[in-house]
C-alpha cells in the first residue's frame, strides 16, 4: 500500500525533481568548465573564485532549490485538491495521517536527494587536485549545506499553503511566506549553525504539526 502510494507520488512529482536536477547539473557543468550549457542565458560560466565562497554556485543552487521546494509542496497538496482526487484517495482504508506522511516523505526524499547531488559533484570536482588552483576544505561547502537544510522548511510551508483552506489565495500563502522568512533568518544566522539548525528544526516540527491538524480539520471537495 505504501509502496503504491509512494510510486504514485513519484510519478506525479518526480518530473519536477528531474527538471531541477537538470538545472543543477547544467549550472555545475558550466562552473567546472564542461561548457555544455553556455548557450543558455543567465547561466554562470567557469568559476574564477574559490569554490563555494562566492555566489556563483550558491546563488543558482539556492534559487533552483527554493523553486523546487515550493513547486513540490504545491504539486503534492494543492494539485490533488484541484483535481478532486482527495475524495478518492482519502477514502481508502488507511489512516489519513499515513497518506500525508507518505506524500511528505516522498517529497522530502526527492527534495534532499536532488539538491545534494550538485553540492557533492561540485565539491568532488573542487577537491580533486588539478581542477582548481587553490586549497579546498569541506568546511567551504557549509553555506550550501545550510541552504540544503533549509529547503524542507520551505517545502513544508508550501505544502501547508496548498492544503490550507482560506478565503482567497493571498491569505492561503501565509504559511509559505512565514517559512520563507524563517529560512532567510536561518541563512542570516548561518555562522551560528546551532541556532540556525534549531530554528529550522523547530519550525519544521511546527509546520508538520499544522499540516497534521489541517488534514483532519478541513473539508475536501
Amino acid at each position: 500500500m505504501f509502496k503504491a502510494l509512494a510510486l504514485k507520488e513519484l510519478r506525479e512529482a518526480g518530473w519536477l525533481a528531474l527538471v531541477a536536477a537538470g538545472l543543477h547539473l547544467a549550472v555545475v557543468s558550466n562552473l567546472i568548465g564542461l561548457n555544455l550549457f553556455t548557450w543558455l542565458p543567465m547561466f554562470p560560466e567557469k568559476i574564477n573564485e574559490l569554490p563555494f565562497t562566492g555566489t556563483s554556485f550558491t546563488g543558482p543552487f539556492a534559487l533552483v532549490g527554493c523553486v523546487l521546494a515550493i513547486a513540490l509542496g504545491f504539486r503534492q497538496s494543492a494539485w490533488e485538491g484541484m483535481q478532486g482526487t482527495y475524495l478518492f484517495l482519502l477514502h481508502r482504508p488507511v489512516a489519513r495521517s499515513a497518506i500525508f506522511a507518505t506524500k511528505i516523505g516522498v517529497g522530502m526524499v526527492l527534495l534532499l536527494l536532488v539538491n545534494c547531488i550538485p553540492v557533492l559533484w561540485f565539491a568532488d570536482w573542487a577537491a580533486t587536485p588539478g581542477h582548481y588552483p587553490g586549497p579546498f576544505e569541506w568546511r567551504l561547502t557549509e553555506p550550501a549545506w545550510g541552504w540544503w537544510c533549509g529547503f524542507p522548511l520551505l517545502y513544508l510551508g508550501a505544502f501547508l499553503s496548498g492544503i490550507r483552506p482560506a478565503r482567497w489565495y493571498g491569505t492561503r500563502l501565509y504559511p509559505l511566506l512565514a517559512s520563507g522568512m524563517l529560512l532567510l533568518v536561518a541563512e542570516f544566522l548561518s555562522p551560528w549553525w546551532t541556532i540556525c539548525a534549531g530554528i529550522a528544526l523547530t519550525s519544521s516540527v511546527l509546520f508538520a504539526t499544522c499540516i497534521r491538524t489541517t488534514i483532519f480539520a478541513r473539508d475536501y471537495s
Binding site: 482527495y86 475524495l87 482519502l90 477514502h91 483532519f216 480539520a217 478541513r218 473539508d219 475536501y220 471537495s221
Partner: peptide, 8 residues
C-alpha cells in the same frame, strides 16, 4: 461528504 468523512 460528512458521512464519508470528507467534511467535518
Amino acid at each position: 461528504k460528512m458521512l464519508a468523512g470528507m467534511a467535518c
